[in-house]
Write a protein that binds this DNA or RNA. Structure first.
Length: 604
DNA sequence: GCCGTTTTCGGCCCGACTGTTTTCAGTCG
């Protein structure tokens, strides 16, 4: 199986660090880093692009040289230059640059003067007090290195957006209450709604700098003050989250918000636009010499650069500028657009709350309809349903419809896809259901080709409505299946099977990149919570965030439809699917051939 | 190493903080 895009990107990014250690031209280093970023965000598999003449060279930041290196990596798992460099700078050394406070310059110095090439040697030298002797180091640096090592050994790295959400809002609310503070915004990747965040960036205007910094560094949640200055202070909270606060002048608030929201790449593009006009853009404003052109609001800055305001979720320098200039920025979906949650569990299987409580919960959120989707029998430990239990469930659903008027309840089931792609329920029982979600919960380590065939077979079943958490990943715990998403999304589009954005914060599956890809290939998208308790119905926002980052609008998402429209569409799809159920082998083959024909390039 | 409705050569974003310096390098975002 070919290397994933992320793995290719990793080779480039490590190679970039090696070049830095080697004292290479900084722009050459940047070229590799930029390429790693582009590849990491690319939806289409590089293995495919590598076979197409000139396709790699079309990617931004990829020229002749890097294209060849990508082909090398895809075919052999590495590239000669990387292997060569590894002899000089071992990977453990490269990884030292990931420690806080250590960059390539210091790591190089450590390596060349003390022969330190991994974390173990670094820790030993720091403990022995040998670092302080080096130029540019001192006692404080030595202590800092030890602390970074300690953090690196325990910290999981990034925190789930959902974990930071309440902490961030509570902290912002406390800052807002300070005397004469005017505006408080949480910027950074938090505002761009990335699924995980590294730290929080708080922007504050108004109030006195000293008072704001005092309150911030003495907040109840703060366990450590990492730095304190006139415009910026950094702290670590009890939750482990690092928070930077910036106190900015009000006339600069928009420029600062823009700057600290990022992404870095988006900002660089904006700066270039400013330079083209002979201006300069920084966190204090858009200026021409001494003269301030814009800065009070983000809109003002964008307008001055001849752009409409771009939603933070799209600021990844992955096509948003082209859309903005063409006046084609999507009107992103909002949580209030959703009319239903179509993936909910009850205590009949592994949920915590009763059927009636879940339906009431959905109704309380203002939904017009919902689907109850407990597990099927192969998940035995959850008490999953077999055919007999499904028939019993028909009566339970009818009862809850009577008990809770004002919301339509679809009788659904989350049916397991068995190892060979068959469904974990007989056709007769499936026919009793209004909404059939299919999902993989077993054999997640299947080889890619086998796993893909398994999913494709399941998608072909005429009773299937949607596929839940298609990649099967758990953020920070499980990588997800090695699937050929291009083929799966195309098949889903053909069969009218919706692909789910599962809003459980540690799933977010489909993620933003996959969701964009699925949509581009014509698959319809549904956003669900997979709630196992009433309280989890609020996870919907995290699914909406992924959809927004994917550039999806209300029209692109199935469960924004009014109930009647949803039912009409589902009816039409079911008819179409049944009509061409089980395509004969030759037909399947020719369809596959058509698929491999020239693809539209992804916007990423 | 990439890129080019001025350019195939000569550019490539910019400022704050820390810790070490006594004018600045390294790191970070």
């Amino acid at each position: 199986m070919a290397l994933s895009n992320a793995e290719v990107a990793r080779v480039f990014s490590r190679y970039a660090t090696m070049l830095e250690l080697d004292g290479a031209n900084v722009f050459r280093v940047r070229a590799y880093r930029e390429a790693a970023r582009v590849l990491g965000e690319l939806a289409e598999p590089l293995a495919g692009l590598a076979k197409e003449e000139g396709a790699l060279e079309e990617l931004p930041g990829i020229g002749k040289d890097l294209a060849q290196k990508i082909r090398d990596i895809v075919s052999s798992g590495t590239m000669p230059a990387f292997e060569e460099m590894k002899k000089k700078y071992p990977l453990a050394l490269v990884e030292l640059t990931e420690l806080q406070g250590l960059g390539p310059k210091r790591v190089k110095l450590l390596f060349e003067t003390l022969g330190i090439a991994d974390r173990g040697a670094l820790e030993a030298a720091a403990r022995a007090g040998r670092l302080r002797e080096l130029p540019g180091f001192g006692e404080k640096m030595e202590a800092k290195v030890l602390k970074s090592l300690a953090i690196a050994s325990q910290v999981t790295g990034r925190m789930l957006l959902a974990g930071a959400w309440p902490v961030a809002h509570a902290l912002a609310a406390r800052m807002k209450k300070l005397p004469s503070v005017e505006e408080v915004e949480i910027a950074g990747s938090f505002r761009r709604r990335r699924e995980t965040i590294g730290d929080l960036d708080l922007l504050v205007t108004g109030g006195s700098t000293a008072a704001v910094m005092d309150a911030f560094t003495h907040d109840d949640q703060v366990i450590e003050v990492l730095g304190r200055g006139d415009t910026k202070s950094s702290v670590r909270l009890a939750s482990g989250l690092q928070v930077d606060l910036r106190h900015v002048p009000r006339e600069s608030f928009g420029a600062a918000l823009l700057y600290f929201t990022g992404s870095k790449e988006h900002n660089i593009e904006l700066r270039k636009l400013a330079i083209e006009k002979g201006w300069s853009l920084n966190e204090y404003g858009l200026t021409k010499g001494e003269k301030m052109i814009a800065g009070r609001t983000e809109e003002e800055v964008y307008r001055a650069l001849d752009l409409p305001w771009i939603p933070p979720e799209l600021r990844e320098s992955s096509g948003e500028f082209e859309l903005a200039r063409a006046g084609r920025l999507p009107r992103l979906i909002e949580e209030s657009d959703l009319k239903a949650d179509l993936h909910m569990h009850t205590d009949r299987t592994d949920g915590k709350d009763t059927l009636e409580a879940m339906v009431r919960g959905a109704k309380a959120r203002g939904y017009a309809y919902c689907a109850i989707t407990d597990h099927s029998k192969s998940l035995a430990m959850t008490g999953g349903f077999d055919g007999a239990r499904v028939r019993e469930s028909v009566r339970e659903i009818e009862a809850v419809r009577r008990a809770v008027p004002g919301i339509a309840v679809l009788h659904g089931l989350e049916v397991d896809i068995l190892g060979d792609g068959a469904l974990d329920l007989d056709d007769e029982s499936l026919a009793l259901l209004d909404w059939v979600l299919i999902a993989i919960h077993s054999r997640l380590d299947q080889p890619g080709a086998e796993a893909t065939a398994r999913v494709l077979r399941a998608l072909d079943h005429p009773r299937v409505s949607a596929m839940a958490h298609p990649a099967g990943r758990l953020i920070g715990a499980r990588k997800g299946m090695d699937l050929d998403f291009e083929r799966i999304f195309r098949r889903a589009a053909e069969r009218g099977v919706a692909m789910e954005i599962n809003a459980q914060p540690d799933r977010t599956d489909l993620n933003d990149v996959h969701a964009r890809h699925a949509h581009e290939l014509g698959a319809s998208i549904v956003i669900d919570t997979d709630a196992h308790a009433v309280s989890q119905l609020e996870f919907m926002r995290y699914g909406v965030f992924a959809a927004r980052r994917a550039g999806l609008t209300r029209e692109d998402v199935l469960n924004t439809r009014a109930l009647e429209d949803f039912q009409r569409e589902q009816g039409a799809r079911a008819t179409r699917r049944t009509a061409k159920a089980k395509p004969a082998k030759p037909a399947a083959k020719s369809a596959a051939k058509a698929n491999s024909a020239r693809r539209g390039r992804s916007a990423r």
